[in-house]
Design a protein around this nucleic acid. Structure first.
Lengths: 349, 349
DNA sequence: GGTTAGCACTCGGTAAAATCGAGTGCTAAC
DNA sequence: GTTAGCACTCGATTTTACCGAGTGCTAACC
């Protein structure tokens, strides 16, 4: 679909050095204190050797250009989304603290279990690491091929279709037949399904038998149930870690409520993360993601890829005044580790 | 383990009719307004034909007996946990509004899909119905027998053990072997596993082959991986619906944070619900569940059973001043529907 | 003896007033 | 272009006053 052109990586807006320094100082301090920042604290701060008055003049300019805003006349300045954007675009990559590095290493050295478990635990790790709410998305297995199919009968009419995919995911689907089938027939259907489906993707059409016998009917039923899953894009996995952090990190019950409400709708979250990823961006600030209820949030995402293909993403959600450098470093580190974790798992095998 | 004796069903404390009426009036009004309740509003209210002064005298008594409390001298009274307890114990069963009844019927008429999906959706239904956070717990499948096992090989050393249980659950476990195995061996191991495990429960010990060939080693490996799951009590499913409601329903960021934090630890939630269920109770108010961080919460649970056995539970979590009657009715109705939904599903089969 | 009207009293909540001070914009001098 | 100086603004905080809902007590009432 038509999307806005990918611009973020090359910052277009240019500020002279001093304005940039001032803007940065304001952002840094405001992230730290959550308070509007005044001219004098900026002047005293940093490598600026100018008076507050000069800073003030510059701030007026920055405000006119949309980088800063004033909550009210006699208050300091607060960064706008555009201000944060500039800040982030000009951020040199941060380095993780040694403790955090150790924690990540420790985690990936000891984590084990199914992919799903690893992803879930990773989301906890991330939220612990950053104190923000984390989102870990594993993409669907539309590309995966079928490794094995099995029809298990629960009773005469109820069967369970269990499918194993090449990416290690397993799905189950109830198959409720309008006719009875005995054990032998189910086993035979299972055999035929295997012959039919192994090696195919869910997207592929398969030739189902058109005969009218019980086995053929079972096979048709099973295939249709399996393919019916397709449109729902199932297989998308989402793991949200540290939703409680929302209450810490946002002020105002209303905001907390809204954000929690969004987080509950996991599909929404997935599409948000994928949207951001599509735009080739790693940070979406405030209104940038075009998602009104989250206009006071910033979202940081980092893709997890395997063989050059994106197989998932990790994301972090916080207020616009979030600790970008730290969090971006954490997201990147974890996504890298995830990549090698899964990559290594397969190569080593 | 030793537990407090099951008392709640037969209320031991007896208040004379008037005190009871007053207590009830206070509870009702406080639930409605969230404000301390004064003597005059109680006197005007209801079937009491006494003056505020009399009500006051009674209130002093009720306070002395621990049913009411006064936030400060010149304020009205607020129910204590004990007060709520009395109220709940003497509550006649409520009736659901027609709209809600319809919604529930509608839901169960149209819901379909796997058990897991139904439970998840049910948790959403419950929270929508009641405006509180809901918890739906499906108990583990320790009692279920194995219907089918299959070992699928991903590559020479990685295999996936997929097990189908009689209750319709499916589990998968990675099996990482220290040796290589070819397709034929894996298939054979799969066959032997089936022969070995079908019909057994996870608790049962099975006789594994002690030979040293690849197939036997695979079988041993697979069995041990499968049985290793046992102690973790896996199979417990939890679905939490409407966690965002927490922000609406509790005042004070601190409380919201605490409750959300608890909800995140799903294991904790399960054990809480099961604990309450164990005590034979359907409502746990404030400190009754002995779980400090939730001391400002009330939890309502209703078991879901099948063939006389408890297979799960639905729960609702709100402030102690929650709408008990409504919520209990909703919980009961939904749990009944769930029971028949699953019961019917199997019988009809 | 239980009930009630009357009354003094308490004390949180709200509102108005006073105060403070961080921060601003402007101007004039450097 | 920079800066010191200054009047001004305006949110936040504190102070004070006040209101009134609600209490507990007592004395009268039935």
């Amino acid at each position: 679909m038509a999307r806005r052109v990918k611009t973020p990586p090359q910052p277009q807006s240019n500020l002279d050095a001093r304005k940039a320094t001032i803007l940065e100082a304001v952002v840094v301090e405001h992230i730290d204190t959550a308070q509007p920042v005044g001219s004098s604290s900026v002047a005293h701060n940093a490598d600026l050797v100018v008076s507050p008055a000069t800073v003030r003049t510059e701030m007026v300019a920055l405000e006119r250009e949309g980088y800063l805003a004033q909550p009210h006349t006699s208050a300091g300045r607060v960064p706008t989304d555009k201000g944060y954007r500039y800040f982030v675009d000009h951020l040199e990559a941060g380095v993780l603290g040694p403790a955090q590095q150790r924690q990540i290493k420790e985690f990936f050295a000891h984590v084990r279990g199914e992919v799903e478990d690893v992803l879930e635990q990773t989301s906890l790790l991330l939220s612990q690491l950053t104190s923000y709410t984390s989102v870990v998305v594993g993409s669907g297995h539309s590309r995966a091929t079928v490794l094995s199919v099995q029809l298990v009968n629960l009773d005469a009419r109820h069967h369970l279709l269990v499918t194993v995919f090449s990416d290690g995911t397993v799905t189950k689907h109830s198959v409720l037949a309008s006719f009875e089938a005995n054990h032998v027939e189910v086993t035979e259907a299972s055999r035929q399904l295997n012959a039919l489906l192994i090696g195919t993707t869910l997207e592929a059409k398969v030739q189902v038998p058109s005969r009218g016998d019980t086995v053929a009917k079972l096979v048709r039923e099973a295939v249709s149930v399996l393919h019916a899953e397709m449109p729902t894009m199932e297989g998308e996995q989402v793991y949200i870690g540290g939703s409680a952090k929302v209450a810490d990190v946002f002020e105002g019950v209303e905001t907390v409520r809204k954000v929690l409400g969004i987080l509950e709708q996991e599909l929404l979250v997935v599409s948000l993360v994928e949207d951001i990823l599509d735009k080739g961006v790693t940070v979406a600030i405030g209104s940038e993601h075009g998602f009104e209820p989250l206009s006071s949030c910033a979202v940081i995402v980092a893709p997890v890829s395997l063989d050059g293909e994106t197989i998932g993403a990790v994301g972090l959600l916080g207020p616009t005044r979030m600790k970008y450098q730290e969090v971006m470093a954490a997201a990147e580190a974890v996504s890298k580790h995830l990549t090698t974790h899964f990559g290594g798992e397969i190569e080593r095998g």
